[in-house]
């Protein structure tokens, strides 16, 4: 009952934010701004689509009383946690590598890191 009311809404929010990230990936001018778009939106969008899964699991556990639906929700929580921690660190690693390999931000007004390297 909860599921039919809430889950489509959560799925739609997650998909809209994921889609925004994809538009940003195509539209932004350089690698740093693309990282801005991709990291934030895909992490947040995946959290919302997974919340829909958790709502479904809770709803089916109440309806049927089978333990495997609780397992589904628990494993989804672990997967989302792993994703949220690793995604930010991966973005940080790519940004650092990009600056070290000589890609400088397009249309930048200030770059303190370039000055600090010399």
């Amino acid at each position: 009952m909860i599921f039919e009311a809430v889950a489509p809404l959560l799925l739609a929010i997650g998909l809209i934010f994921n889609g925004m990230g994809m538009v940003g990936l195509l539209r932004f001018p350089d690698v740093y701004t693309r990282l801005h778009a991709c990291t934030k939106t895909t992490t947040f969008g995946t959290i919302f689509t997974s919340l829909a899964v958790i709502v479904y699991a809770v709803d089916w556990f109440i309806a049927s009383g089978e333990g495997q639906y609780i397992m589904l929700g628990l494993h989804t929580v672990i997967a989302v946690f792993a994703l949220a921690v690793t995604n930010a660190t991966g973005a940080h690693a790519i940004a650092r590598a990009a600056h070290r390999s000589g890609v400088h931000p397009a249309r930048a007004v200030v770059d303190h890191l370039k000055g600090a390297k010399q």
């Binding site: 997650g14 994921n18 990230g21 994809m22 990936l25 690698v31 693309r34 990282l35 991709c38 895909t42 992490t43 969008g45 995946t46 689509t49 997974s50 899964v53 989804t76 997967a79 994703l83 995604n87 991966g90 973005a91 790519i94 590598a97 990009a98 390999s101 890609v103």
Partner: peptide, 22 residues
């Protein structure tokens, strides 16, 4: 540039995890 491709690959990985959960 190569970092752009790395960003796209990272994004694809995240979306594949979301797809697998669904």
């Amino acid at each position: 540039t190569p970092p752009d491709r790395a960003v796209a690959l990272d994004t694809i990985n995240t979306l594949i995890v979301a797809t697998m959960i669904l």
